[in-house]
Amino acid sequence: MRALTISTVLLALAVPGCQRENREPGADSAAIITVDGSSTVFPIAEAVAEEFGKRYGVRVTIGVSGSGGGFKKFCKQETVITNASRPIKPSEVELCAKNGVEYIELPVAYDGIAVVVHKQASWVDRMTVDELKKLWAPEAQGKITRWNQIRTDWPNSEIHLFGPGVDSGTYDYFTKAVVGREHASRGDFTSSEDDNVLVQGIATDSGALGFFGLAYYTENRDKLKVVPIDGGNGPVTPSLETVADGTYQPLSRPLFVYVNKQAAERKEIQAYIAYFLNQGRPLVREVGYIPLPDRAYRLAQERFDRRIAGSVFGGKGSKVGVTVEELLSKQ
């Protein structure tokens, strides 16, 4: 009985506290910077939040709802910053507009998407984008199932496909770059939200081919074989260098941070963004991603300072094969 009484008292104590509630960005809200979004961008955001928090004593919280889930919260003003591994989509532009949320789009790093096969798949020396398209296009479902259907001198054995979940920005970008349409691919592949599951799957299946973020390949070099991709100018192996200099195409993509324009007037958010864009380089590299060129960070800071709202992609999703510098210079 006593336990019951105690818990009732606890509940009574807890309830009056819930009146204080503040979801409006810009107001005090105890100076917490609320961030959510892409799991791909998370390690970068975590590194920046860690160092920034230590130096300025500002509280930063980061959730991982994925790029899409992040935009939903961002456009409902539940967060002030959202991480995204792809540009904002038309449906999200609409949602933000409906709620009167204006956003400033800032590129913060590059990521490569690695295409990998089993360690012993000796026949795969390179692949062209057309070959990848033939393999991953929606029409290939149930039809392209053997290696020699892609290239005749490849073995007559089954090919098993692995890829990230269809809600991830990585999947969106890969389909846009390879198939030509965002979110369009065959459905008969093993998908997992957890990239380590894909690594395990490909490492233990001799007929496997899959794709995921470059960092998961670099950390598992000994278990996997990476496929050099020919985007028209000869095969290129993904690496920090080839992604940074723009030669690994079309599977290099920029990563973004979106800031609520109204919240951009808050001092601590200005400090966070300035820290991200000016001190972020070594942190981006440390967690396995590729920093943008200095000029791109300067252009991004300028974009933030001038509070230029909207997306350089026009709210239409990814553009393949353009560098962040080219995009930002157009502003």
Binding site: R20, E50, R59, T61, G63, V64
Partner: peptide
Amino acid sequence: LIVVGALAYIAFLPDSVNSP
């Protein structure tokens, strides 16, 4: 809890029932 909005990174402890 992920759906409700529990966080992946938080470098402080909850100080009230309204805390993230």
